[in-house]
Amino acid sequence: MTITETDLHHLRRCVDLAREALADGDEPFGSVLVAADGTVLFEDRNRVKDGDETRHPEFEISRWAANNLIPQQRATATVYTSGEHCPMCAASHGWVGLGRIVYAASTAQLTAWRAEWGLAPGPVTPLPINAIAPGVPVEGPVPAFEAELRGLHLARLA
């Protein structure tokens, strides 16, 4: 895994967006889309609290990219995210043709935390990104964010 200082900077923003989502009563997830030249193009956080479970930031990034970028720009962009894409978001990423994904916490980590806390599994099978979008370059998890993200997800239960 080749995580750079730039990657860490953008992942920090994702974690801050996750914290913002939690403060608004939502699930703690945040994501940022960055162009090949380093320009932040789009960022969002989870917005599922009102009942639309498709309002994941990674899915919103796919929608935004499809409407605002040409295929070459999509392919060279990087999606940073606090948590590994769910299958829905991984599929949208693959269909839209976005490039590299860097995530702070993995689906396996989140699944283990939820089981440890006695929570029921979600309605969708937890799969790694490359099980859904095999051609996408993926890097993560990044240990530097594990404790903080675990704490945010635990705080969601309080």
Rank of each mutant, 00 (worst) to 15 (best):
E5K: 13
T6F: 09
D7A: 12
H10C: 04
L11T: 09
C14R: 10
A18D: 05
R19Y: 04
E20A: 14
A21W: 01
A23Y: 04
G25E: 06
D26K: 06
F29G: 04
F29P: 00
F29R: 13
V32N: 08
L33S: 00
G38Q: 04
V40N: 01
L41M: 07
F42M: 11
F42T: 10
D44V: 02
D44N: 13
N46F: 01
R47S: 13
D50N: 12
D50V: 01
G51P: 14
D52V: 08
D52Y: 12
E53S: 08
E53I: 14
T54V: 09
R55K: 15
R55H: 12
H56A: 09
H56P: 01
H56F: 15
P57N: 10
E58H: 07
E60H: 09
E60G: 05
E60F: 01
E60R: 15
S62G: 15
R63M: 11
W64G: 03
W64M: 04
A66R: 13
N68R: 14
N68F: 00
N68G: 07
P71G: 09
P71H: 07
Q72M: 06
Q73Y: 01
Q73S: 05
R74D: 01
T76F: 01
T78G: 09
T78K: 06
T78D: 05
G83A: 11
H85C: 13
H85L: 14
H85R: 03
C86F: 02
P87M: 12
P87Q: 14
P87C: 08
C89Q: 00
A90G: 10
A91C: 11
S92G: 11
G94C: 11
W95H: 10
W95R: 12
V96G: 08
L98K: 05
G99P: 02
R100I: 13
Y103A: 02
A104S: 01
A104K: 05
S106M: 07
T107S: 11
A108E: 15
T111S: 09
A112H: 10
A112E: 15
A112I: 00
A112V: 02
E116K: 15
E116N: 14
W117I: 02
W117D: 09
W117P: 00
G118M: 10
A120L: 05
A120H: 08
A120R: 10
P121T: 07
G122L: 04
G122C: 04
P123Q: 07
V124I: 14
T125H: 00
N130I: 02
A131S: 13
A131Y: 03
A131N: 03
A131E: 14
G135A: 12
G135W: 02
V136S: 03
V136Q: 05
P137T: 11
P137R: 13
V138C: 06
E139F: 11
E139W: 01
G140A: 10
P141V: 06
V142G: 12
V142S: 12
